[in-house]
Every structure is written in structure tokens, then in C-alpha cells.
């Protein structure tokens, strides 16, 4: 980001703890947690219950990033995937601990807690989930 422009990534507890929520009306599960269910809307108000997710899932699609944002320039090339979690929600995350060629649609993966990025100007380090191959 251009020099002198304030930028901070909010610390989001769900990003550390894999906390989603479940709609008390239709039982659908969301991650990140939603204030209301987009399928039930007002019927879901006050009925969204937090739930801890397993962090296990499968790759729906992926890419290998060769041209990255500033904070990631030293990590390229790195794989990014959309992962469908066992509980249903889909999320975007990096795939780590494997050869880039191994990354495939359908690959079974599990979450692992890692450093995600380091702010170029402030040096602040941010953590969150990445995914690795599930054996």
C-alpha cells in the first residue's frame, strides 16, 4: 500500500478459532458467522448459535499466485484454494506443506494455524488458518 496510508487488518477471533454459526430455523451452518440466515432471514433472528468447526474439508478449486500483493511478494508462487468444509461452508485459504503440483480439485485438506502476512510498513504479523493435505 502507498506510503503513509493507514492500514490495519482487524483481529477477528473467528479467524483464529474456526467459530461459525448454525441457523436455528433451517440448520444451515455459516462461516464466517452471520447475524442472520440469508435463507430464513427474520425467522432466524436470535436463533443463530455459535458452533466450532472441524477445520476439515476438500478443495473445490484453486490457483497458484505468481503475482502477489506487496505483503505476499516473498511468498510467491503460492497456492490459494476455495475449500468446502465438512460442515458445508466454503472459504478461501492458502494450501501449504506440499508441492504446488500436488494441489488438485477434490484433495482432502485440514486446517493449520499459521502466520498469514506481515505488514510491510508496520511489521505487524497476522495469523490465521491455512490448509494442508489430510492423510
Amino acid at each position: 500500500m502507498g506510503e503513509g496510508v493507514a492500514r490495519f487488518w482487524r483481529e477477528i477471533p473467528q479467524r483464529y478459532n474456526f467459530i461459525g454459526d448454525r441457523c436455528g430455523s433451517c440448520e444451515r451452518i455459516f462461516f464466517p458467522p452471520k447475524e442472520s440466515c440469508p435463507f430464513c432471514r427474520r425467522k432466524s433472528m436470535g436463533k443463530m448459535k455459535e458452533i466450532k468447526l472441524s477445520g476439515k474439508g476438500e478443495i473445490v478449486t484453486y490457483t497458484i499466485i505468481h503475482v502477489g500483493p506487496e505483503d505476499f511478494e516473498e511468498q510467491v508462487p503460492y497456492p490459494i484454494a476455495i475449500v468446502k468444509l465438512e460442515e458445508g461452508p466454503q472459504i478461501t485459504a492458502q494450501i501449504v506443506d506440499c508441492n504446488i503440483d500436488e494441489v488438485k480439485i477434490g484433495m482432502k485438506v485440514e486446517s493449520t494455524f499459521r502466520k498469514i502476512r506481515q505488514d510491510g510498513s508496520t511489521g505487524a504479523i497476522y495469523y490465521g488458518y491455512k490448509f494442508k493435505k489430510r492423510c
Partner: peptide, 13 residues
Amino acid sequence: QEWEAFFGATFPG
């Protein structure tokens, strides 16, 4: 920003 870009996803990505 919080659930895609934070993790290193770019637009071309």
C-alpha cells in the same frame, strides 16, 4: 478484504 484478500487472494487469483 477480510475473508479473501487477507489470505493472499488477488483479483487475477
